[in-house]
């Protein structure tokens, strides 16, 4: 944590960069990090909490080993994204936004990834799977279970 801190000049506008680094390093924003950032950047804890709950990129709970993101943008939506999401939810036994009990999978939705031509899209640990069909869901999950988690960018 100190290391992350030391990479930034201690000015308030660095808040989001700091949070991003912490998120990718820990997979979430630990609560004690908030008070530490508050002290260093001189922003109140409540204000920091306001920022980090505003952005979907930050989470307060650890995410699972594998992150699956389903695009729910308009184009994906009309091309069947809700069915893909349903299938993932059923197969993983969790709802969108949750993490499986064994801490293996986190399922999230996102409003558009900007690749509408490829819709419906699912992103599994950074790999884009375009023109998804429900029967491919199982494959993706199986594949993820075998793989070790790729290092996140």
């Amino acid at each position: 944590m100190e290391k992350i801190m030391s990479e930034y000049t201690k000015v308030q506008r660095e808040l989001i960069h700091l949070l991003h680094d912490a998120q990718s390093k820990f997979g979430y924003i630990p609560a004690q990090m908030i008070s530490q950032i508050s002290r260093e950047l001189k922003i109140s804890e409540s204000e920091i909490f306001g920022v980090l709950t505003f952005y979907k990129a930050f989470t307060l709970k650890p995410r699972g080993e594998h992150l699956i993101t389903i695009c729910m943008g308009t184009a994906c939506h009309v091309r069947g994204a809700p069915m893909i999401l349903d299938e993932f939810e059923r197969k993983l036994g969790i709802k969108a936004g949750e993490t499986s009990e064994d801490n293996q999978f986190t399922l999230e939705t996102v409003n558009c990834v900007g690749a509408c031509a490829l819709g419906p899209i699912a992103i599994a640990d950074g790999d884009y799977h375009g023109q998804m069909k429900t029967r491919e869901v199982d494959e993706i999950i199986k594949k993820l279970k075998q793989e070790k988690r790729k290092s996140s960018e």
Partner: peptide, 19 residues
Amino acid sequence: AAAVSFIYRGSQAVVGTVL
């Protein structure tokens, strides 16, 4: 004091404190 802030967003937005 900045003890309260807007937290969450969109339809979930509410005035609240840290955690």
